[in-house]
Amino acid sequence: MSTTNLIRLLSLALIWGTSFMLMRIASPVFGPFLTTFGRASLGALAIYLYARHRRIEFQWKRNAKTYLIIGLGNTAIPFSLFAWSALHVPSAYMATMNSLAPIFTAVFGFIMLGERLSWLRICAFILGLFGVAVLVGIGPVDVTPWVIGGVLAGMGAAVGYGFAATYTRMYAKEIPALATATGSQFAAALALLPLAAPAIPHAITHGTGTALLAVAILGVVCTGIAYAMFFQLISTEGASKAITVTFLIPATASIWAWLLLNEPITHGIIAGILIVLCATAMSLGLIKLPKRTQKIA
């Protein structure tokens, strides 16, 4: 990887690492749906301006269904789940759940594309669940129904990412990546509007400058700019290298939350993160078993 792209990768990890902390700031004030709507709307505008600068063709009418399904699976549903999860669990928990996305992508590849699962990926799935159990069981917060719900919501977001990634491979191969990113963000914002609208009066009367700034950064930087950086990384280094940003996000999220929200970094958090990241590495094929044990019938 070139020095420029390495800097881009590290910057992307730092940016996406802040998103969980920012949701912890914005969601209690604006609610999960309005927070997500603001993020998707501002992200869509930022990506649109960049895509227009690159002279990308969107073909809105032809690709409307694809944009909608990807927008729901990759933005509206997972962003909302994480925003709700932010009400109940620390940033490190959410970032760790986010790291499960490649594992669920492999599962959906099996379900939707008929790709054969290796024993390695089955072990990765089991190990990932074990890592989540370790994180919750010996993490810094008490295990309550709300905490369990927050963790399950984060896992649900990872499931959404896995589905969207697989659907994109199936139906968006001929659409420019920036067009897919832009169209899906606009579709997500439109889908979220009816759910976000009831929270607007409360946000007007009780909103804070800090929460508003958090949503603005979530949308413009963590979504718009970050997506543009990510697709540049994919185009120059390939998806397999770009996805390694997954390994850096839990650490950066934990550090940001520790510095700015005073969230503790405990042995339980470190153990859970390491186990989940090991599972993710197995799912991505960075850790391999002998060939004769790789495939199952």
Score class of each variant (00 low, 15 high):
residue 7 I to E: 00
residue 8 R to A: 14
residue 10 L to S: 11
residue 10 L to P: 03
residue 13 A to C: 15
residue 16 W to E: 01
residue 20 F to R: 01
residue 22 L to G: 07
residue 24 R to V: 04
residue 26 A to F: 11
residue 31 G to M: 07
residue 33 F to H: 09
residue 35 T to E: 11
residue 39 R to N: 08
residue 41 S to M: 12
residue 44 A to Y: 05
residue 44 A to F: 07
residue 47 I to A: 08
residue 52 R to D: 04
residue 60 W to L: 15
residue 64 A to F: 13
residue 66 T to G: 06
residue 72 L to G: 09
residue 73 G to N: 10
residue 78 P to I: 11
residue 92 A to S: 15
residue 99 S to K: 02
residue 104 F to I: 04
residue 107 V to L: 14
residue 110 F to C: 11
residue 114 G to A: 11
residue 115 E to D: 13
residue 117 L to S: 10
residue 120 L to I: 09
residue 123 C to T: 13
residue 126 I to L: 15
residue 131 G to L: 02
residue 135 L to P: 08
residue 138 I to A: 07
residue 141 V to Q: 14
residue 141 V to I: 15
residue 143 V to E: 05
residue 144 T to D: 04
residue 148 I to T: 11
residue 156 G to Q: 05
residue 157 A to G: 15
residue 164 A to G: 14
residue 169 R to S: 12
residue 169 R to K: 15
residue 178 L to P: 00
residue 178 L to Q: 08
residue 191 A to F: 15
residue 194 P to G: 11
residue 196 A to Y: 10
residue 198 P to I: 01
residue 200 I to N: 03
residue 202 H to Q: 13
residue 209 G to N: 09
residue 209 G to E: 04
residue 220 V to D: 06
residue 224 G to D: 05
residue 228 A to I: 09
residue 228 A to Y: 06
residue 229 M to T: 00
residue 229 M to A: 02
residue 231 F to W: 05
residue 236 T to V: 06
residue 241 K to L: 12
residue 252 T to V: 04
residue 260 L to S: 01
residue 264 P to N: 10
residue 267 H to A: 15
residue 273 I to T: 12
residue 275 I to N: 10
residue 275 I to G: 10
residue 278 C to I: 15
residue 280 T to Y: 05
residue 284 L to H: 03
residue 285 G to K: 08
residue 292 R to G: 01
residue 296 I to D: 03
residue 296 I to M: 14
